[in-house]
Design a binder for these strands. Structure first.
Lengths: 212, 212
DNA sequence: GGTAGACCCTCACGTAGCGTCAGGTTCAAG
DNA sequence: CTTGAACCTGACGCTACGTGAGGGTCTACC
């Protein structure tokens, strides 16, 4: 694997190197979530560094509790911002570590009590179970807010883009028409296409990614 | 909830207190894994402290990666040793914490590189993914050994039981036959049944609990 | 005592994310 | 060339619940 995009890992090698299963990687390919860079003549999958980078993000988001469909939607929107996934992942790890340390301490107290032939209180056990479910609860309210805000910001960016650009496009279009340019003129076509693009950002932009 | 076995938690209360779902608790009841202490006249489930203690062990063993059937088998065998589950659980938490700290450190380096507009190496990403799968790998070799040793010890107990009892059974059987007793005699039938039981411990004892 | 909403029951269909297997082709080392 | 490992596609199956339907119970309040 070189630092450019030369494909060098077959599916088995990638699976072994990452600890994932071949079945998992094929599953992701089937879903269009992680497609190989190319295939050999025989149909073998070849993965390059871009796929590895994307795979990191997939697995990290899985660990954050997102379903595969959600991950696909998110990655297709966010492919320019790899840093945000890493940041979230770090935050999640720190949360887990903290909760696990608390739970471990709690369990050590339970173990000490059992060692002394004292039955721990029921509350101890209930707290321990609750600690376990807290650890496995993937989204804190803060994280959900963050993701929701992210979606909103993308929406807001689109709105601002349209607001900034539309008057300029309109003014240029008007200038062209006052100059007597026809609708087949390349510049007019260009302006019209961009205007259609901006309009399309509003109608095709929201995919409704609520989790069942 | 008092310190004796008075049932006081209904299923919703137990679910809320532990962070588990009502559905999960019902599911465990259906499986006979965690049965309520009693039911009200209306059929509501009532859980006491004994159930809470058992539930702790169930959830802990789930976190260790055992399936529910395996947990049932293990708990039915080990109901006298709650301390071992706590111990294993502590060990698993410490393992996870250690791996998560390593992964967090690794990710922070990746984030720093991305911050500086440097693309991290592919090896960094591969290592990160591997770190994630290591964390989720439930059984360390030591734990597998421990569980295997546990099963072996149970097996050895069965062997000893047969070795101790068989000669006595055989001697009694011989005495009965030298007395002229027929095979239909109750005592002879009893002895034969016990001998069949002991033999069956060898052939029916191993459930092949390998995990796919 | 009556009411209303939260909580409980059983039953049962459905699912996400793979695991496993079958049957066959390709690749790489000896 | 041979052989065994690695790869392909296709497809059935699984675990541990989630969800909804339809109905009864419990508890607090009027």
């Amino acid at each position: 694997m070189t630092t450019d995009e030369t494909p060098v890992l077959r599916i088995g090698a990638l699976a072994k190197r990452t600890g994932l299963s071949v079945r998992t990687l094929r599953h992701y390919d089937e879903l269009g979530l992680l497609e190989p860079a190319e295939r050999t003549f025989a149909g073998h999958r070849l993965y390059s560094s871009a796929e590895v980078r994307r795979l990191y993000r997939i697995v990290a988001l899985r660990r954050l509790g997102l379903g595969l469909a959600e991950i696909a939607a998110l990655l297709d929107r966010d492919d320019a911002d790899p840093l945000s996934v890493v940041r979230e992942h770090v935050a999640e790890l720190e949360r887990r570590i903290r909760l696990e340390q608390e739970l471990r301490d709690r369990l050590e107290r339970i173990a000490a009590a059992l060692d002394r032939m004292h039955e721990p209180s029921v509350t101890d056990y209930l707290d321990a179970i609750e600690g376990m479910t807290m650890i496995e609860r993937h989204y804190t309210p803060e994280q959900l807010d963050y993701l929701a805000r992210r979606r909103t910001e993308v929406g807001e960016e689109a709105i601002r883009e349209v607001e900034d650009e539309w008057p300029r496009l309109y003014a240029e279009m008007r200038a062209e028409m006052q100059r007597g340019a026809g609708v087949t003129e390349p510049r007019v076509q260009e302006l019209a296409a961009r205007m259609r693009e901006l309009v399309g950002m509003f109608h095709g932009g929201d995919e409704g990614s609520s989790r069942p």
